[in-house]
Design a protein around this nucleic acid. Structure first.
Length: 260
DNA sequence: AATAGAGGCAACCGCTCCTTT
DNA sequence: CAAAGGAGCGGTTGCCTCTAT
């Protein structure tokens, strides 16, 4: 039952990687591709744990990595994504080509946290540190799938402490010409081809949007490699950028990034 | 010039979720 | 179906470099 251990810990190197180890790992992956980290160290002639090889490759040796300082645009994008996703570094990294989760996590802890604190913003909550908790005005629009009809119910949700009237006013103020009628559905399958779980795990979406007075609208989803689908879906509606986060099944939470 | 402290970052640890047996 | 491993993730550690004294 089960499998054999991934590596013999007694005979594996730890700590900083040598140039020779790097070269061996690069050569092996160039020849055989990524994957099967468990068997890779032995096959590549490395006295390392597979986990260590994977980390070294992903965080340091991958050819598509963008080395060097973060730009101001990247800084702001990280801050926005963090306000939406929290410490989901891998998801954040998925939106920044050439950057790794580890790199972003380190950068956040060493630079951005301090930057936000100097602006008087709590880096955990993204609220002004002297702002009373009851006055926060964050707009969250949730799109929840109806299991039976595959239609999306749209509900607007603001901070708990706001009254219904305040919430309604807030939405109107933020998106004055929006009258959303949004449907999100798995693009490639017939309804009867998927069971509920498959639908729930299908992360590719097409969106049809009916918007009154819409000027432009685009929607896309990308995975961490930047070419497929993921838990994050971005939309631009009438100049407002929205980021959607998939929760359970086809439940999405969209938050405006206020880039208009 | 020596040294202590701070900052930065690569790497490790331990956990969770998913897959395999 | 249960147990164990694999893969991936976020948190933490420890080492190296830089800077102030």
């Amino acid at each position: 039952m089960g499998r054999s251990p991934c590596c013999e810990k007694a005979h594996t190197n730890k700590g900083a990687w040598t140039k020779e180890e790097d070269e061996r790992l690069i050569a092996y992956i160039k020849a055989h591709g990524e994957g099967c980290w468990r068997s890779l160290p032995k096959a590549a002639g490395l006295l390392r744990c597979g986990k260590s090889c994977r980390l070294r490759w992903i965080n340091y040796l991958r050819p598509d990595l963008k080395r060097g300082n973060f730009t101001e645009e990247e800084d702001e994008l990280i801050i926005k994504l963090h306000s939406l996703l929290g410490n989901k570094w891998s998801l954040i990294a998925g939106r920044l080509p050439g950057r790794t989760d580890n790199e972003i996590k380190n950068y956040w802890n060493t630079h951005i946290r301090r930057k936000l604190l100097s602006r008087g913003i709590d880096p955990t909550t993204h609220r002004l540190m002297n702002e009373p908790t009851g006055t926060q005005k964050m707009t969250t629009i949730s799109f929840a799938a109806d299991d039976q009809e595959q239609k999306i119910k749209i509900k607007s949700e603001l901070v708990e402490t706001m009254s219904k009237e305040e919430k309604d006013h807030e939405i109107q103020e933020r998106c004055p010409d929006l009258n959303l009628e949004l449907r999100i559905s798995p693009p490639h399958y017939q309804e009867n081809q998927l069971d509920h779980n498959q639908r729930a795990n299908s992360l590719c979406f097409t969106c049809s949007l009916g918007i009154q007075n819409s000027k432009d609208c685009s929607c896309s989803s990308k995975n961490s490699n930047g070419n497929g689908c993921s838990n994050i879906i971005s939309m631009n509606i009438s100049g407002y950028d929205f980021l959607g986060l998939k929760n359970n099944g086809l439940v999405l939470d969209y938050r405006t990034l206020e880039t208009k």
